[in-house]
Simulated scan of single mutants.
Amino acid sequence: MSRIEQSSESLTLPPARDAGLLAIALAGVSASGPIMAATAAPALAIAFWRNALGAGSTGAYLAVAHRAEFAALGRRGWAEASLAGVFLALHFGAWVPSVKLTSVASATALGATQAVFTGLIAAMAGRRLPRIAWLGMALAIAGTALIAGADFGVSARALAGDGLALLGGVFAAAYVTTGASARRQMSTVAYTTICYSVCALVLLGVCLAARQPLSGYSGEAWLLILAVTGCAQLLGHSLFNVVLRSVSATFVSLSILIEVPGAALIAGLWLGQWPPLSAIPGLVLLLAGLVVVVRARDRLSEPVPDLD
């Protein structure tokens, strides 16, 4: 089969049922950033609770149902899944605070640069990237610079949020790369149970060390924490895994990029938080670059991200 045929096959539309599930998943992840921005609780505490609740909702059952698999896992499998959980905690520890500091649109777009950093990690590991991937990275970097320049004119706080969001993208790439290695040795169920549990424990330690209150929030804040857990952790990424049965990881990765304009639209309509006009060219350029990178990644069989 030629490359052109492979490329077109990778973008085949899913069946109607899975297309509906994909739409629900996209709505879920798009609502993640706006919900966290609206939650009156410390950012690190939000990161902890959404992961702790997500892991706890399925972890106990999975630990029993897959007891034999857990018992058979070697040290390497446990170590890689645990390391992925640490990187995931670092991602959330950087990205969730960024949503509180800069616009949801900028934070979501800059967090999505994990696709660029994943490619760079692959290149550093000796994998040869297609030229089109480097072009996409260049476009994404140019878009990032334009966003940062626009937010610099807004406030130092917004610029700090941009930096945290970008750092979140770096840690997300490390998580995806480490997780891809771990998943070769275990089922997705076992992997996510270990990874999310370790992520929640690390974030708990950070919250305690930083003396972030983990309770005492208003009823509305707790409802929003439950909502972001349901939207992003359960509806979002669980359904992404379901539709992978009928479509390629590349198609799902491209679909997830809809989260960027989706989150911006929800934040604008709900929170009245529209990105500054000066940032829009950067957002468009960054998104275009990410589309190019993800399409090029199809040739490398890179894993689909499993994040926000």
Rank of each mutant, 00 (worst) to 15 (best):
Q233H: 11
L201K: 11
G236M: 02
Y191Q: 02
A210F: 04
Y196W: 06
V243Y: 01
G236P: 06
G205E: 06
L239D: 01
L244E: 00
P213N: 03
A200V: 03
S197F: 02
V228G: 05
W222H: 09
W222L: 06
C207D: 12
A249L: 10
N241W: 03
I225L: 12
Y191T: 02
Q233F: 04
C231A: 15
T193P: 07
Y217S: 07
Q233R: 02
V189N: 14
Y191E: 03
C207I: 05
L224H: 11
R211M: 15
T188M: 07
L223P: 13
V189L: 08
W222Y: 15
A227P: 03
A210R: 15
C207Y: 05
S187D: 09
G219S: 11
Q212V: 15
A249T: 09
A209S: 08
S246I: 04
Y196P: 00
V242L: 13
L226M: 15
M186Q: 12
M186L: 15
G219P: 10
A232E: 14
F240S: 00
R211A: 14
L204N: 12
T188W: 05
T192C: 08
N241H: 11
V198P: 01
A209Q: 15
I194T: 05
L204Y: 13
L244K: 01
L223H: 09
L223Q: 07
C199W: 11
S197K: 01
A249I: 02
S215R: 12
L203C: 02
T250R: 07
A210M: 13
T188Y: 08
M186S: 02
I225F: 11
C231M: 15
T229Y: 08
G219A: 09
Q212C: 07
L204S: 12
W222F: 09
S215I: 05
